[in-house]
Nucleic acid binder design. Sequence first.
DNA 1: TATGAATGAGCATTCATTCAT
DNA 2: TATGAATGAATGCTCATTCAT
Lengths: 230, 230, 230, 230
Amino acid sequence: MARRDLRKERAQQRMAENRKFILSAAEKVFAKNGYSHASVDDIAREAQFSKATLYRYFRSKGEIFTAVIMESFQEALRGFTRIQQKDRDTEAKLREIIHYTLSYYKKKESFARIFLMERSAVKKALNLDIEEHMMPTIDKQAIPEEFRQVITSFQSALTSILQEGMESGVFRRMDPQEAGYILGALLRGFHFRGFVQEITYTVEESTDMLHSFFMHGIQASGRSHEGECA
Amino acid sequence: MARRDLRKERAQQRMAENRKFILSAAEKVFAKNGYSHASVDDIAREAQFSKATLYRYFRSKGEIFTAVIMESFQEALRGFTRIQQKDRDTEAKLREIIHYTLSYYKKKESFARIFLMERSAVKKALNLDIEEHMMPTIDKQAIPEEFRQVITSFQSALTSILQEGMESGVFRRMDPQEAGYILGALLRGFHFRGFVQEITYTVEESTDMLHSFFMHGIQASGRSHEGECA
Amino acid sequence: MARRDLRKERAQQRMAENRKFILSAAEKVFAKNGYSHASVDDIAREAQFSKATLYRYFRSKGEIFTAVIMESFQEALRGFTRIQQKDRDTEAKLREIIHYTLSYYKKKESFARIFLMERSAVKKALNLDIEEHMMPTIDKQAIPEEFRQVITSFQSALTSILQEGMESGVFRRMDPQEAGYILGALLRGFHFRGFVQEITYTVEESTDMLHSFFMHGIQASGRSHEGECA
Amino acid sequence: MARRDLRKERAQQRMAENRKFILSAAEKVFAKNGYSHASVDDIAREAQFSKATLYRYFRSKGEIFTAVIMESFQEALRGFTRIQQKDRDTEAKLREIIHYTLSYYKKKESFARIFLMERSAVKKALNLDIEEHMMPTIDKQAIPEEFRQVITSFQSALTSILQEGMESGVFRRMDPQEAGYILGALLRGFHFRGFVQEITYTVEESTDMLHSFFMHGIQASGRSHEGECA
DNA sequence: TATGAATGAGCATTCATTCAT
DNA sequence: TATGAATGAATGCTCATTCAT
């Protein structure tokens, strides 16, 4: 029956919306308090749902967190891929990648920070491995693999741009993975400044600095690096 | 009375020792569990003191943490200064600084991570009511300011080496603060990889990569960078 | 130092008292609400301690329950043994055993009921076996064995009296274990009447009925049972 | 309109069926988990109905439980009456009653246990507000009274057999109610063993033991009991 | 001084029940 | 009628901190 279908559809639609809403509430709370200090109560309050309702949408606090991260990762990944596929010269793409990443970090601010940092708690939440915590009967399923995939996609997006540049002679020849690692480190390092740092650059400034610096470091010798002229 | 003084002195000595001992215990625990997941009970157990006793030496969990960090920072700062004052050529010093920092990060591993990251919890810990308290060996001054100082010292140590290099012509001329910032970012970024990262380099490898890369990026044009040859 | 010792002793004394007090509070609550419906909060309230304090004395709700039961069992066992060792004729001892058991059941009323009944929950609490519940990481230690011992002691106390009677010719010869089982069943059955039963006999009446009935059933044929005389 | 009636009838029929189905699902779940540990969700899942639907058929979890028990009791009662009305000698009937009861207990295992035992929870369930509700096939009368009736019927079935035996001289003369009470106790006691008991007899063995023992205890003196012969 | 004991506030999670469609 | 969604009230358990000795 069409009517039935429509109703169901609408219901599903609404659930999806609620889910999104809960996630965005959760993101706010996690961003503000970190993982361990964010209580499900807080999230529920922010989402204006009852705590019990959250548990209809997610099986645990950890799952909420996982979902928040995944959502955000995938968004970033989409951006990355979009840039990578553009029809522009490599250096411009590189610049865009840098700018995009820094903007993304800025947008997700403390949130990315949590992810990078509250190690044991997050690992536990993500079900990755165990270290010195108990974790008795948890299904070691699905999710971690998904994560690994996204991360890998990130890296390969980066690497492929760098490789492209090396092939076209814009970048000097070096292990592209190593180069990718260095670029990644620069990006991370630019954003995560510890909380006492007082110098602050805008995203634009940072992009310029980082890009210029990275270019000088990787520029092919033919294009004036290690200037063995005449 | 001299006898009285001696007794007092001995008592103070013992307190200072206990304090140190507690801090080293706390460092272990914080390193293993992160800030929020480390319980005062754990620390007390590790230090083989009663929980209540810890509260005689420190006013709160946050303060213990703060102290642990300060201790560690100062140690690092000493190392930095030592290197900076050595009588060697700038490039060697640079390399040493890089190596030292990466080693330090590695040694303090997750611990530095926490400090850099578990924002809300840590900030809360640091902004804690800091007034007078019984500890004789610690100046009753507000700690956060001290932190800022240490950080600043770090930066200026770095900057001064870079400046030295620029002046001696080893490095290309640029804003030394900017250069310091970039070096800092590289160092941070090299160490704090997300937890899904699979590539791992040893400290030696990292030092080489980082140093070489940084050099290529900053080398003075005369010394072959931006090869504007005759 | 004597002073130290005394202080310690007093402290231990007080802890033991508190423990007892908590247990008696717990017994009340368990008796009123059964195991699953008794909340640790209830017990804490009854004991006029904070919930957290209960957790200083016992590791879990289950452990509290276990302790309550053990305490009570051991008390009963002491009574049993006392009777068994009396220097009286077997029939009188039997009567006393019956009376004692019924009184004990009455005193521990609903409490024994819980123990006998709220199977899965209690089993879980006692750590016995698992049936269809999860129970992830629990140390399957100590306690169950202790229980088994007490139960066994009960049974052997009964059996030994019956055997004694058979040997002295007061009871007819039969498998003493079987006889013990039947007596046990009668005792249990007399007490656990379901909650709709309206007829109620006093302990004295019950003792008389049960004893007389059991005697008639077990009396040795020589002493007029199966009186095929002539 | 006849058509209307038919429709209504069919609807009622279907509701009655659903009701039965839900009850049998509930019985399974209660048997497995006990009363308090059985969740309405579990029952709904087992019955393949939505939780809300259950609440259209029953006003509460307690009412479901009540109904399950009633259903089961009435079934047992039918069995009892059937045996009682058979045209066989009293001793054979007695044996059958015993066997039937033990089998029934076994079949309803933990379920009967719950009913007999999980006091507070069950009592609460039974004293529940019982007023009018939509179920057409159940008399709107207070259920507890009904319970009492069923129990009474049980007892009178037993008593009447015993009385019959006394009159025919197979059993010794005694208060038939008392005798019934004792038999009941034996039956209950035989089935509801504490959970630590290790000896287990089959239904057949139990029947033999119990019957033989009960007979020896109640047999009329003429038929060799209390054999004070000439 | 050192500590064992005590606790208030909190936390993740569950569940019987209601409600809107 | 049937149901998916929503929730208030609990529940077992933990932990930073205080207090009495």
